[in-house]
């Protein structure tokens, strides 16, 4: 049992190291060794397994350059892409974020989703903590995102949340239950 727990601890340590390597907000291509360099065979196996997992979850994008594989954070890439204008004559323009506020929400959302292992609904209270903006402003920005079809709000299905979560919830007139989480595409 102790051995299993060691491996679990090692897995989370390595996951943290990978996340740290991609923590900057501008997109950066990183090689395997730049992400995590180790001589331990055991760590290498876990590291590769974690990379596969994060790639499958859509957080990392593997890009081939000759024989090398470089990795890119999709969250950072998404942030940059959302600022690019649509090329002329392309398919109907996607409803992308145009305000810096929404861009900030998307980046914070992606980072939080990544940190919670890919679960898509992010707590509004976590978003506020991450963005460090007043709750009123966050609610206002989120409602703009919802109106623009870039976010959806969700109610709680568990009663077991701390007071902070309920305190950060969005309450809409005429609706009996508050919204505590948000998903973004």
């Amino acid at each position: 049992m102790a051995k299993k727990q060691d491996i679990v601890a090692l897995r989370s340590e390595i996951e943290e190291r990978i996340k740290k390597a991609f923590s900057h907000e501008s997109p950066k291509l990183l090689s395997l060794t730049a992400i995590y360099n180790t001589k331990s065979e055991k760590r290498k196996i876990i590291f590769k397994d974690k990379l596969k997992e994060l790639t499958a979850q859509g957080y990392l994008l593997p890009l081939k350059l000759g024989n090398r594989i470089l990795y890119l954070s999709t969250a950072a890439l998404r942030a940059v892409l959302s600022q690019l204008p649509s090329p002329e004559g392309s398919a109907p323009p996607p409803e992308v974020a145009t305000t810096t506020k929404s861009l900030g929400i998307q980046v914070a959302y992606d980072a939080l989703k990544f940190a919670q292992g890919g679960f898509s609904a992010v707590l509004i209270s976590d978003l506020q903590r991450k963005m460090g903006i007043p709750l009123h402003d966050l609610h206002h920005a989120l409602m703009e995102e919802v109106q623009a079809g870039r976010a959806s709000l969700h109610r709680a299905t568990s009663p077991n949340f701390p007071e902070e979560v309920w305190g950060s919830a969005i309450r809409l007139p005429g609706e009996s239950e508050p919204y505590i989480t948000v998903t973004m595409p």
Binding site: Q5, V8, Q116, A121, T157, S158, N160, F161, I180, T181
Partner: peptide
């Protein structure tokens, strides 16, 4: 599972391994 129930109620009570 519903995400809230999974993350808030189920995972914390499940053995970590």
């Amino acid at each position: 599972a519903n995400q809230n129930n999974w993350l808030q109620d189920i995972l914390p009570a499940m053995e970590t391994p």
